[in-house]
Design a binder for these strands. Structure first.
Length: 480
RNA sequence: GGUGGGUUGGCGGAGAGGUUACGCACCGGAUUGCAAAUCCGUGAAGACCGGUUCGAUUCCGGUACCCACCUCCA
């Protein structure tokens, strides 16, 4: 078995991954707040941890990995959307409108992430399904002196947890000195954060020992990870922006509620994303959702390829140029390995991923394999040991380990348009022209095909037509 | 102010203290009716200043610039 190394944010080191229980690897990744379409930045952790999920399944067996990714469906942004709809005259109670909004958003999320070839996690809990677990966790924290109730709020007492700040490398005093913390009258200390807050009649709420209210943002992940994975598990992931305060607060809550359990062994954070060198923002006009990209004609597989071409701990720049290069590469690979059944991935590819998810090295390895196949097709001299069938199937199997060239994402490139009629026509024109030396008809047809985005390959062995990535079937009308 | 990250050839983007990264683009050649595709090959790098070393783009220190987080955010 390959040794997997992962970079642990908590120790700032790359470490050998040793499962707590090889029979059941457990991973928790912070999922989306379901108030709107997922934007491109939301997609990065999905793709990153999907690759990790696939690697772990490959190494430990598909039935021995549990991947939990939550939906945050308690949130003021959702409430606001529902309130706006109600004001605009939408039918139904606020609770119903909220449920409607979260349902539709979850549906979008699934559709968009499916398009990127991301496997569904083993479990996708929703915060609203675990309110009871959150309440009992909060009660436990109060009982141990780690939290206190005041004015309908419950707050976590940051000073009661000596390790607070260890994950993000901050000290409580430094942060207070930064003076960018909200000082609320019900807080003992400015850094204390909300576990529970009161809800007015116009907001969703649940009955609790502290009155009708709703949970703070951080407690849900502590409660759900505990319910579904236990007090200690292997990997906790998310975007780097969650490192503080979200994950810091999760650690404080979970470790105080379950002392000695250890909580997550490895913390992994993906870096943020830029668009054409700039932070994605609505004001710059470079903000877009995954759906918008898909609708513009970028295949989900292309988006995935671009994501994988940068290591997850580096800032990724989404550019039009990269997307086009990715599309071209994938198009060639699909043409190369059409209808090939996958076999086991190459050791080099598994090694690349095992080195802290070096997806870029994995792509380099795929290029290497593709180049061998192209050389083979061109009739190059290859070692006697070369086994073509094996090479093709290993290529596809390798690509599939990173979620490329799977049946789920291959439609865009493999929806074959039947060009065989035109192929035969061009072939006959050409063989005539070989006799007459008049190539005008051949050139006319060839240029029309190129104009329509078809790649024309003519060689001694015959004519081959391949639809290119800019193929436009409408332009073929009348050619045959 | 605090914390963390980055700066590699035309572009993207890795690894490794000493031997070609890789992809795309470019250039030369083969091939082709002309092309395309393919094959062969050339060129091109490591922000700046010091230090360690026989040798550093790779380790250490400093400078400059860029970025992110510290507030909802993947």
């Amino acid at each position: 078995m390959t040794t997997i190394h992962l970079h642990n944010t908590a120790t700032r080191k790359k470490q050998v991954f040793t499962p707590l229980d090889p029979e059941n690897i457990r991973m928790y990744v912070c999922g989306p707040t379901v108030y709107d379409r997922a934007h491109l930045g939301n997609a990065r952790p999905v793709v990153v941890f999907d690759v990790l999920f696939r690697l772990l399944r490959h190494e430990f067996g598909a039935d021995h990995v549990t991947y939990v990714r939550n939906f945050t469906d308690v949130d003021d942004k959702i409430n606001n959307t529902a309130l706006e709809r109600q004001k605009a005259g939408a039918e139904g109670t606020l609770e119903e409108l909220i449920a409607e909004r979260t349902e539709e958003t979850i549906g979008w999320y699934h559709a968009d992430m499916d398009a990127l070839g991301a496997m569904r996690p083993t479990k996708e809990p929703r915060a609203t399904q675990y309110i009871g677990a959150m309440i009992s966790m909060i009660e436990g924290l109060i009982a141990k002196g780690h939290a206190y109730a005041k004015d309908g709020h419950v707050l976590f007492r940051v000073r009661s947890y000596a390790e607070y700040g260890a994950l993000s490398g901050r000290s409580v005093d430094d942060m207070i000195a930064g003076a960018r913390v909200e000082v609320a009258p019900f807080k003992e200390d400015p850094m204390d954060f909300v576990l529970w807050k009161p809800s007015g009649d116009d907001l969703p709420g649940w009955e609790s020992p502290w009155g009708r209210g709703r949970p703070g943002w951080h407690i849900e992940c502590s409660a759900m990870s505990h319910e579904l994975l236990g007090p200690s598990f292997d990997i906790h992931g998310g975007g780097l922006d969650l490192q503080f305060p979200h994950h810091e607060n999760e650690i404080a809550q979970s470790c105080c509620a379950h002392p000695g359990a250890g909580f997550a062994s490895v913390w992994m954070h993906n870096e943020m994303l830029l668009v054409e060198g700039k932070k994605m923002s609505k004001s710059l006009g470079n903000f877009f959702t995954v759906r918008e990209l898909l609708d513009q004609g970028y295949a989900g597989e292309v988006i995935r390829f671009v994501m994988l071409s940068t290591h997850y701990r580096k800032t990724m720049d989404w550019t039009e140029k990269k997307a086009q290069e990715a599309e071209k590469t994938l198009w060639e690979w699909h043409a190369l390995a059409k209808d090939v059944q996958p076999s086991a991935p190459s050791a080099a590819l598994v090694d690349a991923l095992s080195d802290d998810l070096n997806t870029h090295a994995a792509i380099t390895e795929l290029h290497r394999q593709a180049n061998v196949l192209m050389a083979f097709e061109a009739g190059a001299d290859l070692p006697d040991s070369f086994d073509a069938d094996q090479a093709y199937s290993q290529f596809v199997g390798s690509a599939q380990l990173v979620g490329l060239m799977t049946p789920e994402v291959s439609d865009w490139a493999e929806n074959a348009y039947d060009l065989s009629g035109l192929e035969m026509l061009l072939e006959s024109y050409r063989s005539q022209a070989m006799q007459t030396k008049d190539f005008s008809a051949v050139d006319r047809l060839k240029n029309s095909l190129i104009e329509a985005g078809v790649e024309v390959r003519m060689s001694k062995s015959g004519v081959e037509l391949l639809a290119g990535s800019n193929f436009n079937p409408e332009k073929l009308a009348g050619l045959a």
